[in-house]
Write a protein that binds this DNA or RNA. Structure first.
Lengths: 137, 137
DNA sequence: CCTTGCCCTGACGCCGACGTCAAGGCTTAC
DNA sequence: GTAAGCCTTGACGTCGGCGTCAGGGCAAGG
């Protein structure tokens, strides 16, 4: 099949496919006219790439999976290199989530304080010092 | 004080300050020599900006807080516009966290399946179909 | 006098994963 | 014959928040 059809069947764009090819991730054979030619196995590779991308993997991180499939393994994650990527990504996600949760809690706390201060505007009283204290993110 | 000192006292760089100024966020008076001049109130504004940035706010999102302070309010979040930003950010963070958690769980599930499949290589058996199903992120 | 250290403006670099436009070619359908 | 619709390569645009030159100025200290 040609690039347009492959893109459609994988739910992506021709631009993305050419980009993957430029990165050496999904090379294509060429017909006489110079047009790219793909087959069903390419569709499998592409779907693997897309599935991983959708879960937040960078393109480079999908490479082991693609090569694993291309090597004839039943699944992209049948190879140790793929498992390693899974584990790194898992740790990365956990870290990210924790960071976001901490940020979320700080914002929630500030919001509560600020709302209270606004409600207590008329009665007057002490000045609750705001300023989110921490750093990072 | 001059730009270098302000940057140091707020734990940032002169480049960042010039950038904020270019965005109209933290304008500066100028001395005869054309050098930027700041005072303690600028330091407060800058610290507000930094605190918010550190929790994941975009520059534009800090603007209401800065203008609130500049308007003479005791805290950057003493104004309704700031509270609105807090709330939007809170919702945004919640959404993001949920997305990441979902992704994390998918990856964890895949990893488990793949590890099991690898362990059961010799005994042979059915082919557990992998491929993370969903979309998005 | 010269170095050091601060300041200035302007402008390109970066990162990722493409979107989008430009300019053109081939094939198929009418 | 020609318009439609596919394909080709090349190259610049996007988004945020600066980093990092490049090129130059001004002032104080040795």
């Amino acid at each position: 099949m040609r690039i347009g059809e492959l893109a459609a069947r994988a739910g992506t764009t021709t631009r993305a496919l050419r980009y993957y090819e430029s990165r050496g991730l999904l090379p294509a054979r060429r017909g006489e006219n110079g047009h790219r030619r793909y087959d069903e196995s390419d569709l499998r590779l592409l779907r693997q790439i897309r599935a991983l991308q959708d879960v937040g993997f960078g393109l480079e991180e999908t490479r082991p999976f693609v090569e694993c499939l291309r090597a004839g393994h039943p699944q992209g994650d049948s190879c140790p290199a793929s498992l390693a990527v899974y584990r790194r990504k898992l740790a990365e996600l956990d870290g990210l989530i924790e960071e976001l949760r901490a940020a979320r809690d700080k914002v929630a706390a500030q919001l509560t304080k600020a709302e209270l201060a606004a409600g207590a505007t008329v009665p007057g009283g002490p000045e609750p010092v705001c300023e989110l204290g921490g750093r990072k993110l």
